[in-house]
Nucleic acid binder design. Structure first.
Length: 425
RNA sequence: GGAGUAGUACUCAAGAGGCUGAAGAGGCGCCCCUGCUAAGGGUGUAGGUCGGGAAACUGGCGCAAGGGUUCAAAUCCCUUCUACUCCGCCA
């Protein structure tokens, strides 16, 4: 969400940015927003003048009543009644216009960073760098589910019976591997100086509507019946929710948090639930990182954040690459975003395992996350990034560490979390 | 889940329909005294947010949040949230 003042002063820049994102349909919104803003300020000014008069008149009434000059007081009362009548429709206009403006402002995309490659959609995302050699073994790499089943690591039939499609029982060493990855990732981030956090897994509706659009909410969020609570789709929801409407002390910044939570998603819409396996499911677990920082620091943090994910995967001997989101594929709130993709020796291509985003001050403006400054307060910058999200992430681990005999090599760094186990058989 | 009490600016706190942007204090600025520090005296000062104005300045909103009553609400009423106390229940 942009600052309306910024839009007013830089309409061409805002339009140029919309074009870069191939959202030309939104171009008229810029002028519409500016017009609405003018109207709103006029209406507000008019209302303020009336309210000022009302306040003065009410004061006079009080004074006259104390002096027992009742007749004079009654005359002024009448004036205030008339002012109030006028104000009713004026205030209605004010709220309606403001609501319309807000809706438009939520739709106008954030100004992307000049470094963001221009492109229409995800096919034009740009590979930045590869880490480790993407290997394809001599033998054929089976579908991830077959790998797991071979080592008795999953019960889908049971899950379907108990919870339906899109759920799973992870069993034995695969379940343990799942926990090991999360524990390792947690410690990895703690060693980077992040504060470990276990957040609420349910959040109120006002937080939900703060952090996502209605369409997103409808497609993702599970509602708890009879309560004003939703299951989180990612811990980012509760983590960023923690900062809504806060005025933050400069000295305490940056906030660098790494949170663990289960994530619940309806996955309603285009893709649906993957029929076989654990790629797209209703419930998964995720270690996340978020940063709330000074505006001038956000790009340094952005670089660090996605590098942490890369480093983590490399330490587990999983080849990855970074892929920069092009303008058209970048969500409206984001200034810049980089995906981390892991190598799939079965598909012989990379697939997304994490996404790092710099939201600039757009999210902070929308949610009221401010910093107390010497010369007035200002909005913070916010960033978020996936540390690791199993079980999807396990697909990469299993495929890359599969041995010809069907066993799975446990990466060195995970062995302490697996009781020293070196191979899952 | 039941019963009660409370929520005022950075913090503590007064206020109980009009004279309250909100006393007082801490705080913060300056000065003095004291030479060793959670000390004393004097004096000055601000307050959140959205507008208008080049500026001095000026208007609206704002006393947990949202509604309502009234010419007028921090103050009365309703709903919600939060904290505390008691009872009940429970990992």
């Amino acid at each position: 969400m942009l600052d309306i003042k910024f839009v007013r002063q830089n309409p061409d820049l805002v339009k140029e940015n919309i074009k870069k994102k191939f959202q030309d349909a939104k171009l008229p919104l810029v002028d519409e927003a500016i017009e609405l803003d003018v109207k709103i300020r006029d209406v507000k000014q008019e209302g303020d003048t009336l309210r000022a008069r009302r306040n003065a008149a009410s004061g006079e009434i009080g004074k006259l009543m104390r002096e027992k000059r009742v007749d004079e007081a009654m005359a002024i009362k009448q004036e205030v009644v008339e002012i109030n009548e006028k104000l009713v429709s004026l205030e209605k206009d004010e709220t309606e216009l403001s609501a319309r403006l807000k809706k438009i402002m939520m739709t106008i995309p954030n100004i992307i960073d000049p470094s963001v490659p221009i492109g229409k959609d995800d096919s034009e995302n740009v590979e930045v760098k590869r880490y480790l050699e993407p290997r394809v073994p001599e033998f054929e790499v089976p579908y991830h589910l077959d790998i797991i089943e071979k080592v008795n690591g999953i019960d889908l039939d049971g899950a379907r019976k108990v919870s339906g499609n899109g759920f799973y029982y992870l069993m034995g060493n695969i379940a343990r591997l799942h926990s090991a990855v999360l524990s390792y990732a947690r410690d990895f981030m703690i060693n980077k100086g992040f504060t470990y956090c276990i957040p609420p897994y349910m959040i109120r509706s006002d937080v939900v509507t703060g952090v996502m659009s209605f369409a997103e909410m409808d497609a993702m969020m599970y509602k708890i019946e009879g309560e004003d609570l939703y299951l989180i789709g990612t811990s980012e929801h509760s983590m960023i929710g923690k900062f809504i409407d806060t005025l933050n002390d400069k000295a305490k910044l940056p906030y660098t948090l790494t949170s663990y939570s289960p994530c619940f998603r309806k996955e309603k819409g285009a893709h649906g639930i993957e029929e076989r396996g654990i790629y797209r499911i209703h419930q998964f677990e995720k270690q996340e990182m978020i940063v709330v920082c000074e505006p001038e620091d956000s790009f340094d943090w952005f670089e660090k954040l996605y590098q942490y994910t890369v480093e983590l995967f490399v330490s587990m001997e999983i080849p990855v690459r970074t892929l920069e989101c092009c303008s058209g594929d970048l969500a409206d709130l984001k200034v810049k975003s980089i995906d981390v993709e892991a190598w799939s020796p079965r598909q012989k291509k990379y697939f997304e395992v994490g996404s790092c985003s710099n939201l600039g001050d757009a999210q902070a403006r929308r949610l009221g996350i401010r910093i107390k400054g010497e010369n007035g307060n200002y909005f913070a910058h916010t960033l978020n990034n996936t540390v690791v999200a199993p079980p999807r992430m396990l697909i990469a681990l299993l495929e890359n560490h599969l041995q010809e005999d069907g066993s799975i090599k446990v990466p060195e760094v995970l062995r302490p979390y697996m009781g020293g186990l070196d191979y899952i058989r």
